[in-house]
Design a protein around this nucleic acid. Structure first.
Lengths: 136, 136
DNA sequence: CAAGTGTATCATGTGATTTAATACACTTAA
DNA sequence: TTAAGTGTATTAAATCACATGATACACTTG
């Protein structure tokens, strides 16, 4: 075999209380968006990544499937899973993430009746503060 | 009875795939942060809100408990649940939400190796666009 | 053919969430 | 005192998404 040296994922910690397959998909999405995963790059096989993450192949499958659904990946039976060659994948992935982030703060700001600008300024000021301010 | 006219929640839809008690807590948190729920305001009784949301009293209890834990509410047995009188509740609630929102975009930007400023600018441009841009 | 790909389908287990039904402790008005 | 309305606690059960584990199939390449 040894067609292409498959991309090797960086050390991953799967902690946060989010579905495993979502975490996996998210990490890959980010790697693509950040252009650290060039188009055409071969991903680890479902079984390999599963083993490396101490997870079931089924779970990795679900992550890959979601990303293929998004058009970020393309798979070929018997060959492997690759970052989509379609032009603009990185840009699309990046734009998508950026838009979601913006809409998030947009909604929060609207809920509070604030402008996005002011909300973020306030949030930045609170950096590292608060913790458990109220002594109760 | 009829001590105080308890605060009447606006029409609520409990759709998003988040725990019910989290959704309830979030809505109240926002109302407090936005100062639409002044300190000392009496909330609907656990049973009333539960009935109005077509939910179990247990679920509302959990939401109230979480907010009391955060110091946003204070409860008195036999009397009811109220917005904490402690000075600065609204500000604290608002600051907390703002900080979380900021840290969110902060992390996303870091993941992409972008500055928060640029991330949001990009996200704002994409407003309403994309949808399902890739034709696959 | 053999080894390595993706894919599909089960049955099963697990854990958080939610329901439902009670029961208890307290406060207030009648 | 009584009754109605508060919050609170407990228990059993149902549900559901998630993840596992095992197995089988389809395909590509050397």
């Amino acid at each position: 075999m040894t067609l292409d040296p498959p991309w090797r994922p960086p050390a991953w910690e799967l902690d946060p209380s989010q579905p495993l397959y979502e975490q996996i998909a998210h990490r890959i999405r980010v790697e693509i968006a950040a252009a650290r995963l060039p188009k055409g790059t071969r991903l680890p096989s479902v079984r390999d990544l599963a083993a490396s993450l101490r997870v079931t192949p089924n779970t990795v499958m679900r992550a890959y499937a979601e990303l293929e659904q998004d058009g970020l990946l393309e798979t070929f039976r018997g060959q492997g899973t690759f970052v989509a060659r379609e032009p603009g994948v990185e840009a699309r992935a990046r734009a998508r993430i950026a838009r979601q982030a913006f809409e998030h703060v947009r909604r929060v700001a609207a809920d509070l009746g604030m402008r996005v600008e002011d909300l973020l300024r306030l949030g930045a000021e609170e950096e590292g503060g608060d913790e458990d301010a109220r002594s109760h």
